[in-house]
Write a protein that binds this DNA or RNA. Structure first.
Lengths: 157, 157
DNA sequence: TATTGTTATACTCTATAACTATA
DNA sequence: TATAGTTATAGAGTATAACAATA
């Protein structure tokens, strides 16, 4: 009954890629809902998070960090700027480049979005015990770090 | 200083949604490559896996199980049928419906695809110790099961 | 009247190339 | 000559609606 029966009923439930896809899709759905009011949705959130710390980065730096094409980043930043969440300002050291700076309203929006996303994460991972959840997140971050360095070596752009 | 410093360097690396997205994207990239010769790519693989066990399901049953729109499933099955991996046969009990049955060639293709995907999974999770990997996969499957039952309750279609 | 499978259309997203202004 | 940002266009992918055959 145990393994073959379960496989016959739901052969995909033990598939690594399938479960990963299901979880990622489910999280994206509730996360999309959490940041629905934010221009650009999840990507708008990631951009705000990327510009919220350190020196104001250039558009190209953001595009590279987030893996977004620079041509689509233009539209995303247009929307964020129209919503007064970020501003574009010329880089004094390089007049071709622009520095993307987050506004006070942008910081406030980012803070609220983070709260909603924390709630989404909690909703998704309810059922895991604290130790299991902690181990899961650690493993996830570890794999992400590996694939990131791996991707850095592969992509040229 | 340590935590704010790390946050300033890579504020997204500890973000649950971000790391989940990075890992899912990385897996999809290598998995797409693994099943590139398969009509429909990853979805073609999932369809083959779904019809490989039990009674031959109808198209609508496959669409519901896999979360694929029935109109796109038509094209995917067209390609799989042209490649002789599955066949459509009328359901004797309901002449509106068609049973999707996997062919011998389909089973062979599925087996090879599974081997390649296992290799992809191994490549991605190298760096985790066996116990960590096992716990990770268990947690992933548990969340997927939860979200699945949750999705069943939410979606009407 | 509802359901299975199909087709056609419109819409969104992304990728590519080309252009400007600076370096 | 190369780079930062922008714009325009074409392609893939998806969703919607409508249809024929059957229940």
């Amino acid at each position: 009954m145990s393994s073959s029966d379960a496989a016959a009923t739901h052969p995909l439930e033990s598939d690594f890629g399938w479960t990963l896809g299901v979880v990622a899709k489910a999280y994206r759905r509730i996360a999309d809902d959490a940041v629905a009011t934010l221009p650009g949705g999840p990507r708008g959130y990631h951009i705000l998070a990327a510009v919220s710390d350190g020196q104001p980065p250039s558009q190209l730096a953001i595009a590279r960090q987030l893996g977004i094409d620079k041509t689509v980043l233009v539209h995303l930043l247009d929307d964020l700027e129209n919503a007064k969440l970020v501003t574009r300002r010329p880089d004094p050291a390089d007049r071709r480049a622009r520095q993307i700076v987050i506004t006070g309203k942008g910081r406030q929006t980012l803070r609220r979005a983070r709260e909603k996303l924390d709630a989404a994460e909690t909703a998704l991972t309810t059922g895991l015990r604290p130790a299991e959840l902690s181990a899961f997140k650690t493993a996830l971050a570890q794999i992400a770090r590996r694939t990131h360095t791996l991707a850095d070596g592969i992509d040229d752009c």
